[in-house]
Write a protein that binds this DNA or RNA. Structure first.
Lengths: 222, 222
DNA sequence: TCGTTAATGCACTAACTGGTTACTTTTTAG
DNA sequence: CTAAAAAGTAACCAGTTAGTGCATTAACGA
């Protein structure tokens, strides 16, 4: 049943045949299951047995490929960061007018958090552990640099075009763009109680996005 | 009920007998230890034995007073909310000019998160559990209402005085004030890596507070 | 076809975990 | 002074947990 890949042996260096054993596929299934389990219960609350079961893999495989529960978490977290940073790069904001580019980034950030709630939960978990896993990741640092410079470019272009005021710190702006979406979504459950409205209702979400775009635009306006 | 005060001592107002057994004190020690342990490791990661040890109490006492680990968590969380809402009410913002009042609230929120980091972690934990504990708390809802109306009053006063624009939703404003501080602080560890600067350095904190006040002021400005 | 290597599965464990039972000691009402 | 209630303790339990040892099976190069 695990023989999946219809990949008939093609040319090239790695002629893929249908395999009953497929390390890559098993690894991928484990990572996917782990992402969901870690996101749902945090690093401490996640159960290795549950991950193995969800991945339709043997627990032994987890330790074979990822060494430990923490090793698995680290890989999951690293992938999550690479995924969002990659998606951001694909936005191609340099082709847009500064205002449009900024709005698009705010929109993207919001949509990404909304569609990938596990990213938020993983980051929360990692901060509970004082970023001990992320610290070890070199790749994340490289991606982050590109991300910060992306926002700086938009800002600089906007200032040059006279549509943004000067002196806005790109890092602070970055943090703020993330914050106004992240906070709303990560605290959607307690927030819905405290503010006595369903923060996840369709129009509530739309209203918040509009508010966030407005907040950022006013922040950089001349 | 458990009020133990000077029942026996009669006349001498402060003639508290040193007690070797003190239910209230033990409860308080347990709650304090629990707050720290839950904040540090989350609900799932916290260990009941550790809480008992930190509180210099027997584990049995925890179950005696709080029924279960989750019951203890709920009480800790409830107290945390009551504490922050009480502190907010004490700000007495109604006596200040609208702009001052708003700035003071932004400042307070930031300082409170900074001085009580466990509040943030507890809220994060609770959201991981979809607010199942907070849902049961009536007292929190009452306090929350007062809190929201406080911001609404400031906003209304500002509009009337012509210093704030009309049409800003007090709930969205509230969320935003919390967000720009909360996000920065809860993600201070991963943030320090991603942005390659020490977000907790004294001047970084001051700069962020200034930026946040600016953000909110621009948001409500006419 | 065969031998080596990588992938997989099963059964196990040592340490832990939340929660409890049975008991002792202190406080306090009458 | 006494009896009962409240406060406190230690040992224990049953179920879990991350992590392993070892046998087995498939893939693949020669």
């Amino acid at each position: 049943m695990e023989l999946v890949a219809e990949k008939t042996s093609g040319g090239g260096s790695s002629a893929r045949k249908p395999r009953t054993r497929d390390a890559e596929a098993t690894k991928a299934r484990i990572l996917d299951a782990a992402k969901r389990e870690f996101a749902k219960n945090g690093l401490g609350g996640a159960r290795v047995d549950v991950i193995a079961e969800k991945a339709r893999a043997n627990k032994r495989m987890i330790y074979h490929y990822f060494e430990s529960k923490e090793g698995l978490f680290q890989t999951v977290l690293e992938n999550a960061y690479v995924d969002i940073r990659t998606a951001e790069q694909k936005l191609n904001l340099d082709h847009l007018a500064p205002k449009e580019a900024l709005e698009r980034l705010v929109r993207f950030t919001w949509d990404y958090y909304l569609k990938n709630p596990e990213f938020i939960t993983l980051v929360n978990s990692e901060n509970l552990h004082r970023a001990k896993h992320l610290k070890k990741s070199e790749i994340v640092k490289v991606y982050s640099r590109k991300f910060v410079s992306m926002v700086k470019t938009i800002l600089d272009r906007g200032v040059a075009a006279g549509v943004f005021r000067d002196g806005v710190d790109p890092v602070q702006l970055n943090i703020t763009i993330a914050a106004i979406g992240y906070y709303y979504l990560t605290n959607r459950f307690t927030g819905s109680i405290v503010f006595e409205r369903d923060l996840l209702a369709k129009d509530a979400l739309e209203e918040r996005l509009r508010f966030n775009i407005d907040t950022i635009m006013r922040l950089v306006a001349t």
